[in-house]
Design a protein around this nucleic acid. Structure first.
Lengths: 152, 152
DNA sequence: CTACAATCAGATGCGAAGATGAGAATCACC
DNA sequence: GGTGATTCTCATCTTCGCATCTGATTGTAG
């Protein structure tokens, strides 16, 4: 019941790129230093984000990574799913697997509901939204639409 | 970003106990068979649930486990936290650790908000609520959206 | 050509998931 | 009341995937 480090790092890295969007690309070393992420691990993460088409890489001196789209056009959900595949809070929700308990599984529909609300919340938030709320850590609640709340 | 198997199994086991609440206790073997959980793993889980005071064990013939409280008095959140400790979607939310990035961490407050909603949703649902949902008569069998267009 | 930065191929440490087997408590029954 | 069946309890061991590191290779600007 925890976001993997991969997703955590990946999202923070994307935010770092978003900060400098429009300017020159940023190297892995810079991102890693700014966000306290181990270099080699970040490298793999960036690779996957690039495969998903979220970021672009430029080789050589002065090179690095940059966003493929504007920060307000990239949702948190896209970043997470690029790194972890389709959202599935519980293994039985994973499309790749199927729930063994045919009927009478008391938790599947519950988890499915939570999962759906989770998806909505992450899908409704963009990198630009995240950057807007950094300063005070106590921030306005209107950033995430109420309908996407996890509580019914 | 996935509920651990431990929590998944633990919650299903608690539901199984809730079904027979008031009657004689149920053995690990029975619960494991009913929910498709490996016996030895379930044993450890039950041990932790017992330490948390959620269930009681009786030895010997006809023994097994039973709920310490009524199903409508035990929330999903209690079960999960008994097995995983305090909820923390991201490591930096864990009370035991602290976020290294002093200021400017763009994601911490976002995750904190999601985490809070998660807590509320799990805290507001009891084992009795879960059991009411199972029949499958009215709620469709959570058919998984096949073609999930992730990156759009 | 050379310094810089991404790319690629491995090996390692660690914790979760699951397996195995021996031991201790309780009950049924003779 | 002792014997054995049943069930929880406890310690240890493998397996597997995540997180991390090391080093070599390729591509690009100056």
């Amino acid at each position: 019941m925890r976001i993997t480090r991969k997703s955590d790092y990946g999202l923070r890295a994307m935010c770092e790129l978003a900060k400098s969007h429009g300017r020159s690309p940023i190297s892995i070393t810079e991102v890693a230093a700014a966000q306290g992420i181990p270099d080699p691990f970040l490298e793999k993460i960036m690779q996957e984000l690039k495969s998903a088409g979220l970021i672009a890489a430029t080789h050589g001196r002065g090179g690095g990574y940059s966003l493929e789209r504007a920060p307000n056009q990239i949702s948190v959900r896209e970043v997470i799913e690029a790194l972890e595949g389709p959202m599935a809070l519980v293994t039985c929700l994973d499309p790749a697997l199927k729930c063994m308990i045919e009927d009478g599984c008391p938790t599947s529909s519950f988890w499915a509901l939570i999962n759906e609300r989770f998806e909505q919340a992450l899908g409704a938030t963009t990198l630009a939204d995240l950057l807007q709320r950094i300063p005070g850590s106590h921030s306005p609640k209107h950033t995430i639409p109420e309908e996407s709340g996890l509580v019914q």
